[in-house]
Design a protein around this nucleic acid. Structure first.
Lengths: 225, 225, 225, 225
DNA sequence: CATGAATGAGCCTTCATTCAT
DNA sequence: GATGAATGAAGGCTCATTCAT
């Protein structure tokens, strides 16, 4: 009999090796991918570039990943991790809605700024790859859902414009900030960071008609996606 | 020659043909490009696909265009044209700021919805191609500039929140709407159209703190980019 | 949207072009494939070798065929054609069973001899590729079926050993000749052609116990697979 | 180094290890090779597959063998051993030619059946590798030579058709059986075993025109290759 | 102008083989 | 001896672009 492997070897999932050397090489590849993706974008990045940047042979790439898509996945997860655990101090508990929102906006904008090239790539991939588009949409929905619930709560407390549809408002406001970050840091239309924070916060509050003077609260969650 | 990384496309500019047949072929190619770009995205679209969709030989493409980039340019200009001259009746003069903004949002969202696949492509291209990114930024700035001047005017008239930086506010609010359109029509997270119009308008007014009851005015221009 | 062509282009069946030039190139490729397959075997033949032998660029191969398997198919069909229409005069109507069988054996052995390298390749492919193995088995069965029916007829006429299972006997005898051809012409253990013809014919007759002196008949079909 | 066209494999002959561990590893590799060759065929079998099947590191393979060819050699020798010493009781001395031939056919077919996948591989290798083709031819000739001498003897005793060329007849008849075995067990066109034995025996006798009732003899050797 | 076959650079992916641990 | 990650040559395939008809 012959059969079984007429062509491709079914791309058995490359396993993360336990050996120290393997871990190091894998890490080098992911780090290199960050550089290359950030520099060339997802579409123009070549496996060869990544291997070279990582100082390994072309074939070594395939010891750890099956495709560009797969290594992007790994890079993406790293960035996600950073996004979820911003390095800023100010994400703690806040005395009032205003400073909660501001802290959140600041944190988001800061991470975005620091990872601008990769954020651009993530944006691009959502545009090119169906799987990532779906993944991205799912993540957006999660964020938006939380914000929508916050808005509903504020509306019930009489603190937010009751005429607004919470879901759309949440989506719109989140989008406002992320879009602004994109324009500013990716398309590179620079603005002073603090003005950015102040204005987004102000717009956020205005948009919901949250009164300037506010009762102390920790009812608000203001995530951005 | 192959070289798919950097687009070569420097050869003698293909001229717009004088003959009727030439005009027809060129038009067929642009129309085909719309279809193919809309279906496959910019990155995945192949010259061959466009030629075939246009029922034209592969080589004929180069009679009119030097590259994918160049035919995209042509498609882009067509779409721009539509965006600037929306087919909706309501873009006339408006009695008040509110209905001016609403008409504008409605018009924008409507065009976006009708051209969703191509809007997605434009988004993708901005991501892949430096020239288009620059072009896109320039267009954004023009729109934003007008909006910023409107905001300034409203602030001077005491109708808009004076605490806002007009430029950033303009950019943020425009972005809010375009982002929402993107999510809704491209990422395909559907929402009822009228609710979309009402909510964006409301958020726009809120964000600027424009009072509900307003003096008649034609002072406001609310473009979106 | 993106999608559709994330990786391979679905390998649209290469069409046989109508243009003279195209026909010529395609023919050149098939002819080259005959040479290369005959020289290197199926497994060791490279697309590049075939293209070079045909004096065309590497990529041109794919204008006409999607794979080595596909061009082999084409070569195979040509050989089949020759096998079914041997160039020998003697395949006409025969006065008796003996000369019918002899003519058949002679024709078969002659074609085999002339196409020896390709017969070897066909043998090899049946060994490597499941589709061809199936194809080969099917063809064998067809041949064998006809022979089995002839044997049954001869048995009824009292001319062939009634103790034999016609199907197995047919398969065995056909195999005997094809195997001998393989050993002689492919493994290259040379024998005088006429002795080969005489002996196979004799063995064939003996095996079925067909008497030496025979009534005139055209009842026998003796194909070999 | 890669070079998959011509097997390199000239490095210093790996020695049979003296240590117990070494013996065990080597044996595991050969056993694994049997499995892998039988499953994937020679061409598609990869060194990695064999190592994995043997639960041994990829590099360990080269402690014992220089190439796929070399380990195949080892497997082949094992199979040869079995072919030469069939496990059937009936290969003893026989009262008459008929039962000698029948015993021989039965034994051959039985071994073939039990080793069908490997027989297929051996067939394939003869097709791909010149060294093995030569080896195979040599073995065939040895078998055939013995059979040819038996036929000559029978002819002299007036027991076999004197019109037959003993060498070709021997080759043809041996081929008949091996071919039948190939079709039945490898191409998988199944037939009842006993019918197979009876028919091959009958055909063998018929082909040589050995009379049904025979003097006792041990003059016949009927090997098959 | 149109045609469509031919070209060939470029990137991907596999896997035999080596070698430091 | 065993391990398994690293290497890199080899070949497959695609598709932008050219050019003879």
């Amino acid at each position: 009999m012959a059969g079984r492997r007429t062509s491709t070897a079914e791309a058995g999932a490359r396993t993360t090796p336990t050996s120290t050397r393997g871990m190091r090489t894998r890490a080098a590849l992911v780090a290199a991918a960050r550089v290359v993706f950030g520099r060339d974008g997802y579409v123009n990045a070549r496996i060869i570039d990544i291997s070279q940047e990582a100082d390994v042979a072309a074939g070594s790439f395939y010891t750890y990943f099956n495709s560009k898509e797969e290594i992007f996945q790994a890079v993406f997860e790293e960035v996600q991790e950073e996004m979820l655990h911003p390095r800023m101090a100010e994400t703690g508990v806040h005395a009032d809605v205003v400073s909660a929102i501001e802290a959140n906006n600041r944190a988001y904008l800061d991470v975005y700024r620091r990872n601008a090239p990769l954020m651009a790539v993530i944006e691009q991939v959502a545009t090119v790859n169906d799987d990532f588009r779906a993944m991205r949409l799912k993540r957006s929905r999660a964020f938006t859902g939380r914000n929508a619930r916050s808005i509903t709560r504020l509306q019930r407390m009489g603190l937010a414009d009751p005429a607004l549809d919470p879901v759309i408002a949440a989506r719109a406001i989140s989008g406002m900030v992320s879009r602004l970050a994109y324009t500013t840091f990716v398309l590179d239309d620079p603005l002073p960071f603090e003005v950015l924070v102040a204005t987004t916060t102000r717009l956020w509050l205005n948009a919901l008609r949250i009164p300037d003077e506010l009762p102390s609260t920790s009812d608000v969650v203001a995530d951005t996606a």
